[in-house]
Design a binder for these strands. Structure first.
Lengths: 232, 232, 232, 232
DNA sequence: GATGAATGAGGTTTCATTCAT
DNA sequence: TATGAATGAAACCTCATTCAT
């Protein structure tokens, strides 16, 4: 069982280095030096640098799925909004707590090597599917509007979410500890729930030519388009 | 002026190759071979490979700013919602029409080399500032709610936007031409405007403890906050 | 005695692998895996890979000597030609039945490592000495011409013999089983006995400046084939 | 044309080193050091060590063919025996004058690497074909007996020939200069012409069932050497 | 005895960059 | 200005051998 430990040791070290210096600028030798093992030892556990990197990606996907699945199952029967918000909250937490892997996925991984693309894309596809599934659940529950382009919206939400992770947990990581995840989740959820606008407006009208124009039945909501006040 | 042309030729070729094969997998020689010039010639125009890459990043930033500025100035006085939507619409168009640079920025660039980070970050910072500025304008115009965390929301919006670009213009680029940008912009804008939920619901109850809970005065919308019932 | 078996097991396995893949491309680990023993065990029986290889060479030499000595002693008093032919016949058989070692000697061994040269050369020297001894015997018995350069002729005969082994037992090993060793020995012996020419010619003179030109006046030359038709 | 020279320089150096130390014990670096060029330079001319080695093999084949073709064409119409002897003579000379390549072919090449086998075998196949062709010519000219197994005999002759090269030009290379190629060719040719036996014998019969046993009744046998007729 | 994880010297190869022409 | 042969640091990886268990 010593072997499993050694392997983990290499993975841990690599995670940090890849995250800090990127794939190409992390040399196998760097890893060896840091954990004081010989070249041969490394190559007993991983057949090459590539495989090591992929292992990290695979691990991340696995860990994330576990974390998310946990959320999903535990909240499946709750109110859909509570479920959504919890999903956001938990995912933020997961990414915050996995800075290195998160960095690798969001920053280092993409575009590094063609070989990695499938793994990155697989991860993104899975995340996307989760979001889509969540949206579908919402639609079935009549909580979510039917006129949304599911794939597009899922991408919007996923992009928004990943960007937050990237910005707060990577770019501004030094302030990471003072972050209030609850508040962040609230803000995110709030956008989803109500948009960003105030209600004070009395403006009318659609937003564009090819507007999505769904039937409205809200009292005081006008369109946003061109010639302003096009009264009802 | 011959020189300027030669330089542009190199940049154009590099743009395509970096986009297609990534920075590390594009060798200076690949570029030279493609445009049939000697090694020495290359090094007369760029002091090294890095500088070439950075030039592309800088160019992209510049082009984008121009495109955006155009939008901003031409629509500055319009209704804020029209402005927002147009910003989305135009930006989508810009990213769609700059596939290679877009690919470099969104996929290849990040994490490739520490040296590039400042440029990537500078670009992102600028984009972020634009979004923030737009939000501020909205707040000043009393169109946008004051209780939003501006930076967080800007990141959410930027992330959503970049993700769409990445997904539709890079990952699914083969279907790029059949995309309806108007519809995409509508969907995006609609989220911003109204969230994703239906109005039919009558459910009550907040979503979380630390909710952002702003006062609501819309007719048929429940609060998202803990203690539900919030009268007008 | 367990040890002796283990050692033999290693040697047998190595023989096959060295023969099939060559010395440098056969890794100690390959051998160990095939016979399921640990690295440490191997190094208890052989102090290194080199020694293992040399052991094989030495074994081969030993086995061959035994086989040849057998021939030599059993036929020492026979007619010299019968002896010669039997030598050829037996040696062919020996090489045919020791494909792997034969392959190692004739193909893998030479030039592989300077360290092995002495062993290869020792073997070749011994073989050469046997041939020379046989020729001397023939000369003493007045059966063989005295004007031959013994060393040269021994090399010619040895080379011819080894080449046959190499060609039929290694290169064309798939057809090995259908070979008629008797016929091969006949052909070989026939060359030695009479050369390759017919007697029909009446040409005179030497062949070249420094010609071989022995005067000829042989009456008739019969064929060597099938139905003998051997007058006198 | 500088490039061609550089290439030749590498080939020449490699020829010597491979010949002296073998393929595996000659490191690319050894070559570089000897001719004082950088690693990169080497890899501009050869894509790897393997290709370099193969180039040598191919060159050798080419040079040999040229030398032999020369012989063949120049002697095509001569008496077949003169032709044979000249072939032997010229080939000996060629091998003597190409010690390194000869060493590589006869000693270093075989069994070194599976990848080289095709080249080695191609060379051997060609040599074999030449011998077979020569035998066929002899048979057509009714100079050579029809009952020989052509392939077997060709191998015998080729093996004999290569062994001489190997023995005298490699193993005993220090005495190389004092060799009398004429005499060697004579001896070789003589074997082919008359076998090795004296005529004094009166023995009858073949040596085996399928015996070769051709009747003899040659009166006298001349010497093979310069001073022609050395009668019994 | 037997094991196999660990070793690391040393091998091959790459590629951005220089510089004489 | 343009070239491309030459460079060599530095990357990745192999495998015979050791030694603690």
């Amino acid at each position: 069982m010593k072997g499993e430990l050694r392997r983990k040791q290499i993975l841990d070290c690599a995670k940090g280095l890849f995250s800090k210096k990127g794939y190409h600028n992390t040399h196998v030798e760097d890893i060896l030096k840091e954990i004081s093992i010989g070249k041969g030892t490394f190559y007993q556990y991983f057949s090459n640098k590539e495989e090591l990197f992929i292992s990290l990606l695979v691990n991340f996907l696995h860990d994330w799925e576990e974390a998310v699945l946990d959320t999903v199952t535990s909240l499946a029967d709750e109110d859909i909004r509570i479920f959504y918000r919890m999903l956001i909250r938990r995912s933020l937490e997961f990414f915050r707590d996995n800075e290195d892997l998160c960095n690798i996925y969001l920053r280092v991984g993409p575009g590094t090597e063609k070989v990695f693309d499938p793994y990155i894309e697989q991860f993104e596809e899975k995340m996307l599917q989760y979001v889509i599934a969540a949206l579908e659940t919402g639609i079935k529950a009549r909580a979510v509007r039917k006129d949304i382009d599911m794939v597009l919206m899922a991408n919007i939400l996923l992009g928004a979410f990943l960007r937050i992770d990237y910005y707060y947990f990577i770019l501004k990581r030094q302030e990471k500890d003072s972050l209030d995840l609850e508040r962040m989740a609230d803000q995110f959820f709030n956008l989803i729930e109500e948009g960003i606008f105030t209600d004070e407006r009395t403006r009318e009208g659609g937003v564009s030519r090819s507007s999505t124009g769904r039937a409205r039945s809200r009292s005081s909501r006008g369109a946003s388009k061109s010639k302003p006040s096009r009264s009802t």
